[in-house]
Amino acid sequence: MTATASPATRSAAGAPDLTRAALSGRRRFTNHLATAAIWLAVLLAVVPLALVIYEVVAKGGGVMNMSFLTEDIPNSYRRDGGGMAPAIVGTLLITGAAALMAIPLGVFGAIYLNEYGKQRPLARVIRLMADVMTGVPSIVMGLFIYISWVLLVGQQTGFAGALALACLMLPVVIRSSEEMLRLVPDELRQASMALGARKWKTTLTVVLPAAISGITSGSLLAVARAAGETAPIIIVTGIVFSPNVNLFDGFNTALPAQIFRNASQPFEAAQDRAWGAALTLIVIVLGFTIIARLISSRFAIKER
């Protein structure tokens, strides 16, 4: 169209109509459709989450009290009362020990991959292996630890469980930490280098702090996932009915294993304990999350 546009479409010397009404019907329809689709997706994602939390709180809240958290597990599923103290202790110790092993190792592995190995053959092999390890089912990892550790020391222990969980966490920590390190702008490394910093110093004092909150989130996801693992715990830690704080001697147990055992019983008392254990596990994972956020915010600089 040339400058001779009709006054009806371009009134007042070419001032275009900027209101929504000027949009074509098709574009308006597409716009509304996209908005509706996004809201639908949000609902679909939130509804199951809310239902899970509601169910667990409603059913588990009933048995939740001080004695549930502190008393031993009854050695008969049929019996009323009792608590989950051994499983709570076991979950905290086993998951904690696994995190202590897997997170430092995983972060160092990620530092090697992103800062030193880059595209070297060794780094590529490690990256591939980590990806493959992410897909290994947890029961396979449990059997691996059973063969390589439990049979070696001749005993099922909490530490064997921690080893299995650490093996499950390691690839997740490596890959998520590497992604976070990759996001650190190269300009920061160059600035540090130009000030005469050695590479390890740059990595430790510039790159790692810049990526720390992302690394924490990734590691946390791995911890949360490991805290909920059932199969390897059942295979390599055995079972106890009173708390065992020694990871290296004697059987142990954890909340997911107790949920599995108690929920599959026909007795109402056992099923109640399973719900209570589920609620406890969710609260513990929430606790991990809050602690990790506090730690990472201590590293982050204040934007006051």
């Binding site: 702008p185 300009e187 920061l188 160059q190 600035a191 540090s192 130009a194 510039v206 702090p209 810049a210 600089i301």
Partner: peptide, 8 residues
């Protein structure tokens, strides 16, 4: 450098 690159 060309782009200001203060550390965070």
């Amino acid at each position: 450098f060309q782009k200001p690159n203060p550390f965070p």
